[in-house]
Every structure is written in C-alpha cells, then in structure tokens.
Design a protein around this nucleic acid. Structure first.
Lengths: 356, 356
DNA sequence: CTGAAAGCGCTTACAG
DNA sequence: CTGAAAGCGCTTACAG
C-alpha cells in the first residue's frame, strides 16, 4: 500500500492549484485548454492514479454497484452476471460481487458489507426464503434496488420473466406433440417462481381439458440430482407420463442423464422440456428443448433500470419498473425425437431470432 | 445517497469523543467495557453504518480484493470464483469482480479501475496473450498479485495445476485401455497452458513407444464447438485415432455431442477424456472421464496465499509461492464404455478421495 | 482510560 | 479562468 502522487503533487508540478487539477480530471470546460494540457502532462509524468475512494467520500457519489446472486452454479445466473458487469463497466461503474448460495445469513452479511462499502445501487436475486420486508428495508437505506428473476412486490424495480406464459407455452408444445399425460418436475413448495411455473403448466393442461394427477407434480431439488429423482418417480407411475416439463435446465439435464442411464432416450421414451436455454442445453445428448428468455438481455435491462434510477432526481422519480420478458421456446431433439428435430428447430429458431 | 449518522453523532449521543467511538468500533481493549457498551448502544439507537471508504482513506488500508477472470463461460472458473469470494468474505474482505472475456483491452481497463478503487490485492487469471511484463508492472504499483491457472514466471505468486502430469495420467489411462492411436484436441498455438497439456500427452505416448501423427494434434477453439470440429477431423483420418484427450471439459462436451449426433457413443466408438471435472461432467451422456484438480481447493489456496501476503511485513517477505495441484483422474463411462465403468469409477473415486 | 488535533485525497461552493 | 478554504467520515499518534 505505497501511496503514489496526489492532486497536490500534480498541482505543484504543473504550477497550478489543486482545485484546477481536480477540475481538469473531471474534464470541466471551465479550465483553459492550455492549462488543462499542462496538468495532464504533469499527471502523466508523475504516474498519477486517481483515488476514487477519496472522491466518493467528498463528493458523496459512489461508482460501485453491488450485485448479489443466489446461485452461481446455475449458468443462467452467470450469464446474467456477465451481462450486468459489462453494461455497468461501460457506464463507468465497478461491480462488487457477492454470492449467497441461497443462504439467508450470508445474504444479510453481504448486504451489510455492501452498505458499508457505500454502493450506489444494488442488483439482487434474492435467496430463497427472503423476507418480504427486505426490499423496503434496503430502500430505506437510500440505496436503489433492482430485483432480478425473483419478484417481491410491485413497488420495487423488477426485471424477470413471464414464467406463467413460458410454462404454458412449453406445455402446449408437448400437447401438440400428442402427449396427454405430462408431468412437472421441480415444484418447490412455497417458492414464488415455482408457483408461477406450475401455474403456467396447469393452465395449459386445463385449457386442453387434460386432467392432472397429483403425483405428476413432483417436488424435487432444483438440480440435476432432482431431475434424476423425478425420472425414477415417473417410471414407477402407471400409466406413466410420457412427457415432463422441468423447472429449469439444471433439472432437465438430470432427467436426460437418468434416462440415458436407464438405456432410454429423451424425445422417445420421455419428451423433456427445460427452461433458461443455458449454453450447455445445445450440447446435451440429446440436445434440450428449452425456454429462452435471454439472460444477456435481462442483465442489460436490469443494469439500465438501475442506471436510470441513479440519474433521476427527487422530483422526476418514476414508478417502479416491472419488466417481464416473454420467453420463446427453442425446440430441440429432447421433446420431439430425432426425426422431427431439424425442421422444428429451424422454424422455432427463426421465431427466437424475431423476438430479439 | 442520503448520509446517515457518523461517529460524530454517536459521540454526541453517548457523551464521549469521536476518538473513543472509533476505538470502540475497532474493538480496542483500551476502552473501558462500560464506555464501550454505551457507545455501542448509541450506535444501535441511531442506526449507524460504518463508512469503510473513509476508514480506508484515512487508515491507508483497503479491504477490497480485485478478482479478474478471463472466462466465466467455463464453469471451472465460476467454481474458482465462488471459492475465492467465500474465503475472502470470511476474512472480512470484499470482492470486486471483473470479467475480461479474454480481451486484452478490457483487461487493461479493468486493472486501471481496480487500481483507482485502491484494491488491497489482486487475484487474476490473465487473458490469452497477456504481456509477460504485466505481473511486474502490477507489483510495481504496490499491489500484491496472485496468478491463478495461468503461470507467468517464477517471481510471482502462482496457484495452478500440474498440467503436464495430469495429461500424462489421462493419456496413460487410455493406453491402459488398449488404445495406441490417441489424439489431442484443443492445442492452441503459443498458449502456455496448451503447451504443457500437449507435452504431458506427448511424454506419455513416448514413454510407451507410441508414435504420434502430426494431424492427431488438433488445433481448435477451446469450446464445445471446437470439440465438434475435432470429432469431424478424427473421423476423416485413416487409420483414425480410437481415443482423444481433450484440452478441457468444454471441448470434451462438444466431442460427446458430435459423436451422439453421428449416432455413435463415447467410450465405444471413441474414448474421451476431459479436464476440470466441472459439475456438468457427471451429468453428460455418457458421463465424462476427466481430470480433477479441485477448483474449490485451488480457489481457497489462492485466497490464502494473497491473505498471507497482505499480512506480511517488509522484512519477513517470503519468496513467491508456486503451487501446482496434482490432478487425479475421475474415470467415467466416456473412456471405458458402459461395462467397465462402475468398478473403475469406484476405484478411482477412492483415489480422488484420498487426494484431498 | 479518554480527548483534541491533524490529516488521508479528493470536490465544491465562493470569491476574485 | 483560477485559487483559497472548508469539509466528506474516518484513524492515529500524542498528551494528559
């Protein structure tokens, strides 16, 4: 921690006051071009490094944004994080990252730390079981908050996905393929997003007058292991479902794997649909049909929502943003078998392209 | 950005000086327990939030660590990041995250930003093509640096993997299975880690007096797409290799997928070995044999190396750490076919367990 | 055991 | 167009 030259040193070197140096560093038009150049030259010569912390302390405006993520083992959230970091960096903000691993105590600790670090704003995907009061509490700290993926009420900026629509779409796709007994894997009780997804599934079934057995709605962990359990459960039912809508791609990957282990193939023995279109979904065997909402786009919108909030003044404060992306279905072999895949995939890929 | 109470306010509330408040917050034993309790009570009452930035400015000691990652689309680096963030958080440090996506300009920008943020130390996995001078430059800034996964000389702290040993191990495993024509997929030219991995492969082949055709060493992108290209190349060779060692799991996943698309199965048509043991490797079809070095352990060691560096004084400065983990092979179906998998996997899993 | 004072490196009215 | 001065919220010798 050796401390380099300060604006004071530059001022001495350039023969001006430190006020002038500060103004030059901020590219203020109030300083004559000639003087400005002299100052910049001195800064270069001394190897000056701007001290953002000091500026934040004095100017009362921070340029770091906190990003709190619940589950980085899910590649969808990684894509989201990367997009957010990229957009914020472009706007001159630095990203403070923290991972909660769905642990509420970790989340509390992390939020305190971010507050102490004086973040200008927060983007957060709350851990499961987060109290409904948390968003209001964070806002009471004076820190703008954007929630991603997991909504917690209409009065806080939220960027997510229309899960109900998406899961109805996925279910209808399976119904179109002739399936009538369709399971839902990954129904975690008391979990808002799971409720939305199940609701989408149920509404599509109801719309086509298909009945749903209670045991088709399978409550398993939202991991590959959960997917494997779901397959074992399905193959013990009789008559058994011939298709399954999975909570997300992580679950679906477990489903594909367990089928493979049983010597069966997704798309033939059991039609499978996932959600998130993670990068790996294209490379599973067989490739996975899945809902696409665009982590990159969602991350961009979340960042822009926060940036807009940061630049607004007290008076022109806008109501909370509630953005829910409409997902599209990317059809691959896991839901239609090897034969139909090419044409269907091509058709739907075009649809996806049109969406963006 | 509303500013809350400061130590000044607490001092007034508690009827002491701000020096005393500061000392209490630092849990100094110099303050009487009774006074300390009075101060803490006042802080609680006023909803005080510590301003770490101000402390850093005055105390000249920062508690943020910069983490620069080259490729977060590779889950191995995500595991590494998560481990590092966890260990640093436990020691009271905050992680500033940046992603370079292998882009040198982004890396330069990001490093400047971290320097302006006054990070106490840096953990970095340098982007491809990073100049050999960079570590020395960073150290000249007075910022301790730990390199992960990509070594750049003996005079900078480095935590990585013994790639040559690992790839020899992987290659020998295939030779043991009776393969004599073995390819290497993912040989990026001029890339130090790729050189090490190729060298391990070559030395195992040489040790067993097996000749290597030039075209068996396949230069493709280090992605699933690269793996697919490698498979197409292999199946055009005659006589063609019957096994392939892949640069990493990303490449191997592409190999598995292309084989599946050709109606062939890894482990039968072509034995496949990857490297990293990413979480997904367990869930591919078929499951992937791969080298395991333990991202979690590597991340922990990298963090601890940096923390040790941060707490050392000028005099007791230790020579650069050069830690290279010895990888183990996790044998799954992709290299041995369905029959042999259970027993072999069990045996080797035990080996892996013993390693930790 | 506690307090008064100086100062970390900046920014921002204000004066000229 | 530029400078002198005050101050952001802390920490740290130093004095008592």
């Amino acid at each position: 921690m050796k401390s380099g030259p300060t604006i004071q040193d530059i001022a001495a070197e350039a023969g001006v006051s430190k006020s002038t140096v500060s103004l030059v560093l901020q590219e203020s038009p109030r300083i004559k071009a000639e003087t400005a150049e002299k100052v910049r030259e001195a800064a270069r010569k001394l190897g000056y490094v701007y001290n953002r912390g000091a500026a934040t302390l004095r100017g009362r405006r921070s340029t770091t944004i906190g990003m709190v993520i619940n589950d980085l083992t899910n590649p969808f959230f990684v894509e989201l994080l990367v997009a957010i970091e990229r957009v914020l960096a472009q706007s001159g903000y630095t990203t403070l990252m923290a991972h909660t691993a769905e642990n509420l105590e970790t989340q509390t600790r992390v939020l305190r730390s971010m507050r102490e670090q004086n973040v200008a704003g927060l983007i957060m995907s709350p851990a499961l079981g987060t109290s409904d009061d948390l968003p209001a509490e964070i806002q009471s700290w004076g820190i703008p908050l954007v929630l991603v993926m997991r909504p917690m009420g209409a009065d806080v900026d939220t960027v997510g996905v229309d899960n109900e629509y998406g899961f109805a779409l996925a279910t209808e796709h399976l119904i179109e393929q002739g399936h009538t007994r369709i399971a839902f894997a990954g129904n975690r009780k008391g979990y808002a997003v799971a409720n939305q997804r199940r609701q989408g599934y149920l509404s599509a079934m109801a719309k086509h007058s298909l009945s749903v057995n209670d045991d088709w709605i399978i409550d398993v962990e939202l991991t590959p292991e959960g997917g494997r359990k779901a397959v074992r459960a399905i193959f013990e039912m009789k008559p058994r479902p011939t298709a399954v809508v999975c909570y997300n791609d992580q679950v679906a990957i477990g489903v594909l794997h367990e089928l493979d282990r049983m010597g069966k193939r997704a798309g033939k023995a059991l039609a499978v649909v996932g959600c998130d279109n993670v990068v790996a979904a294209e490379h599973t065997n067989p490739p996975l049909t899945t809902l696409f909402a665009g982590a990159d786009k969602l991350g961009t919108i979340a960042s822009e929502t926060l940036l807009a909030r940061l630049s607004e003044t007290q008076e022109d404060e806008k109501p909370a943003v509630q953005y829910f992306a409409v997902p599209a279905l990317v059809v691959r072999e896991s839901s239609v078998g090897a034969d139909a895949t090419t044409s269907a995939a091509t058709k739907k890929q075009a649809l996806v392209a049109g969406e963006r």
